[in-house]
Simulated scan of single mutants.
Amino acid sequence: MLIDLNCDLGESFGAYTIGKDEEMMKYVTSVNIACGFHAGDPLVMMQTVHQAIEHNLKIGAHPGLPDLQGFGRRTINITPQEAYALVQYQVGALQAMVKAQGSKLSHVKPHGALYNMAAKDIDLSRSIAKAVYDLDESLVLFGLSGSELTRAGTEAGLTVAHEVFADRTYQADGTLTSRSLPDSVLHDADRVEEQVMRMVEHQQVYAVTGEIISIQADTICLHGDNSEGVNLAKRLKDRLR
């Protein structure tokens, strides 16, 4: 059995450093690189692509809402047409940088609020999926397991990867717990490891309210800005092997 362990990286910009990108790259198999709207900047994008190629990782674009101050985690009402344009703009920029360094973009994973909005909104998801398909139909679309985004990707003719989260908690409807609520992010390594192994071995996860949710785990996300991210990634890699 094979499973992908992915991480959101390249989130530094200007004078600000976020996360421990090179350390995380030692333990994951694919990376989702911020494209400048919610985090990152052109130089950080280019450097992160270079590092990912050196570590032989699959490289994905991580497009977000235009909200640098809110790190792309605040809901902004956008039209499907706006979603199409902002996704294609960001993915295209990273795609060009990857090509310029002699590699190929592997996948696309929307970020933060855009990801969570698309999980529930089929019209928004279809616009995102079409933006990806029109750029390159060989790109894999990452979406929350069982969400409208994975449904839309399949409808569009894309390969989709159902994503689960190692360090986030879930609601009874299968969505992620809002970061505005307590216990939305997991930092305890034992708890993270237990959740991941249930996901992988049983295709299940416990909601914060106690219900058992059925999921499909094609790729597991760890957040690069989690304070325990590197330790969690190392433990998960060892355990999954």
Rank of each mutant, 00 (worst) to 15 (best):
A113L: 10
K130T: 13
G112R: 06
Y133W: 15
L135R: 04
K109N: 06
K99P: 07
E137F: 11
L139G: 01
L124Y: 11
Q101N: 00
K120L: 14
E137T: 14
V132D: 01
L135Q: 00
A96I: 01
L105Q: 01
S103C: 07
K120S: 07
K99C: 11
A113F: 10
A100G: 00
Q101H: 02
V98G: 07
K104N: 14
I122A: 13
D121P: 06
H107Q: 12
D121M: 03
I128N: 12
A113G: 07
K99H: 12
D121Q: 05
D123Y: 15
L124R: 09
A96T: 13
A118I: 03
L135D: 08
D123C: 14
A129F: 09
D121H: 06
L105F: 00
L105G: 00
V108K: 07
I128F: 09
K120H: 08
A100Q: 08
S125D: 12
S106C: 13
N116C: 02
Y115F: 03
S103K: 10
K99G: 10
D123K: 15
S138C: 01
V140P: 08
M97E: 02
K104L: 10
A96S: 15
D134S: 04
R126T: 03
S138P: 00
A100K: 10
S127H: 14
L139P: 06
V108H: 04
A118M: 02
Y115Q: 02
S106F: 15
I122S: 11
K130E: 08
G112Q: 06
A131H: 09
K109P: 10
A119Y: 11
K120T: 13
V98Q: 02
V108Q: 03
A119R: 12
M97D: 01
A131E: 11
L105D: 00
A131D: 09
A129M: 12
K99Y: 14
I122F: 09
A131N: 13
K109T: 07
A129R: 07
S103G: 07
A100R: 02
H111R: 08
L139E: 04
L135E: 02
S127F: 14
V132Y: 04
S138Y: 04
P110C: 03
S138E: 11
K104V: 14
M117L: 12
K109V: 06
G102D: 03
L114S: 05
A129L: 12
A118E: 05
G102I: 08
I122W: 04
M117Y: 09
D134H: 09
V140I: 15
Y133A: 15
D121N: 15
D123V: 12
P110L: 03
A96W: 06
A119D: 13
M117R: 12
L114Q: 06
D136Q: 11
A96G: 13
K99M: 14
G112A: 03
H107W: 09
A131G: 10
Y115G: 00
N116L: 00
